Simulated scan of single mutants.
Amino acid sequence: MNPNTSAASAASAAQDSTVFRVLARIGYVVLGILHLLIGAIAISIATGGGGGDADQGGAMQQIQKSPAGVVMLWVIVLGLFALAIWQVAEAVIERDPDTKKKWGHRVKFVGTAFAYLAIAGTALTYALGGQSQSSQSSQSLSARLLAVPAGVVLLVLLGLIVAAIGIAFIVRGVTRAFKKHLDLPSGATRSGIVTFGVVGYIAKGIAVAVAGVLFVIAALTHDPETAGGLDSALRALAGLPFGTIILWTVGAGLVIYGLFCFARARYARM
């Protein structure tokens, strides 16, 4: 049997599975919960309440401390793993007649799958009783890159890629491109979901883009501690003029993105 045909058949079988589809939708619910927590922590930082790390690690730590936290963490692992596999399946069965667009879509699907797997890995660490700080991981990665030949170039490239991902989120929100992946209802519900999507995508894009800029700054200043991931990006916003207002707004936007993820779990085309 042709390997490509076999892979496509396996991908189609996975997407035809009701159980797998439900697990993937749970993955969107999980993303919603995480963004609600990250947004709430960011708002807490903006209002001077501290709140911990405003990133996936900080959100996982909050869940770990909650009643039935370990169970919730395992649900997060399963949901995000299923969602990652779903993205891989989408990449395999992508059928856009335009070759460039087809491979562009495939790269996006696979990249998204890796992002979901990375978050699932963080959840697994916490589910097993450990801890993982995203900021330290980012700083460690930056330090390792700066220690190798052409490390500055590599770190700048990484920062530009992360910043580009953030810009892509902003563009997706402004253009409402996310709508084509949803089977939206009519009326006020539709308008509300679209508004949440626009605000949420823009807020998340700003946070991710700033994280990318911090990687570039870390490379140019040879200071790996500058690159601290999402938490450092949000705290950097607080240091800007009117930073408290900006951080509060972005935090609120991340909360709204979390609510959008709940709607996405219900209305995503699967």
Rank of each mutant, 00 (worst) to 15 (best):
A265Y: 00
F260K: 12
L247N: 09
I206E: 11
V199T: 07
R264L: 05
Y267C: 07
L237A: 06
A150G: 10
D231E: 09
P224D: 03
A207H: 07
P149C: 05
Y257N: 13
G187V: 01
A263P: 05
G173V: 08
R172Q: 13
L157F: 15
A227S: 11
A252G: 03
A163Y: 06
Y201P: 02
S191V: 13
R144Y: 14
G173N: 10
G251A: 03
W248H: 05
L182H: 03
L214N: 04
T175P: 00
L160H: 13
A177E: 15
L146K: 03
W248Q: 09
Y257E: 06
V153W: 13
A207G: 06
A233L: 01
L146A: 06
L259N: 03
H222P: 00
L154N: 00
V148G: 00
A218E: 02
G243D: 04
A209Q: 04
V199Q: 03
A263K: 11
T221L: 08
A219G: 04
K204A: 13
L234P: 02
A168K: 10
R190S: 15
F215S: 11
V152E: 14
S232C: 00
T221E: 14
L154D: 03
V156F: 02
P241N: 02
L158D: 00
S186G: 14
G159K: 02
R190H: 01
L146W: 06
I246Y: 06
K180S: 15
I217S: 04
G200F: 08
G239A: 12
F196I: 02
V162L: 03
L220Q: 05
A207V: 08
I217V: 15
F215C: 14
I246P: 08
G197S: 09
R172P: 00
V210F: 02
A143W: 05
V171Y: 09
F215N: 12
L145W: 10
L240H: 07
A233C: 07
S186N: 14
T244L: 10
G258E: 06
L155G: 03
A163I: 00
C261P: 00
V162N: 07
I202T: 11
L247W: 06
V208L: 13
F215A: 15
G228R: 04
R144I: 11
Y257Q: 08
D231Y: 05
R144A: 14
G229N: 10
T189E: 15
I193R: 06
A188K: 13
C261I: 06
L230G: 04
A219I: 02
T189M: 07
A207F: 01
Y257P: 11
Y201I: 07
A177Y: 05
V194I: 15
A209H: 06
R269F: 00
F196L: 14
A164H: 07
G243V: 07
T244W: 06
L220I: 05
G200A: 13
A211Q: 13
L214P: 01
L145S: 00
S232M: 07
G173H: 07
L220D: 02
G243Y: 05
L158P: 01
F242C: 07
G258V: 11
V171T: 08
A252K: 01
W248N: 12
A203K: 10
S186E: 15
F169M: 14
T244P: 09
I193L: 10
Y257L: 15
V198W: 00
T189D: 10
L237G: 06
A209V: 02
A168W: 10
P224C: 05
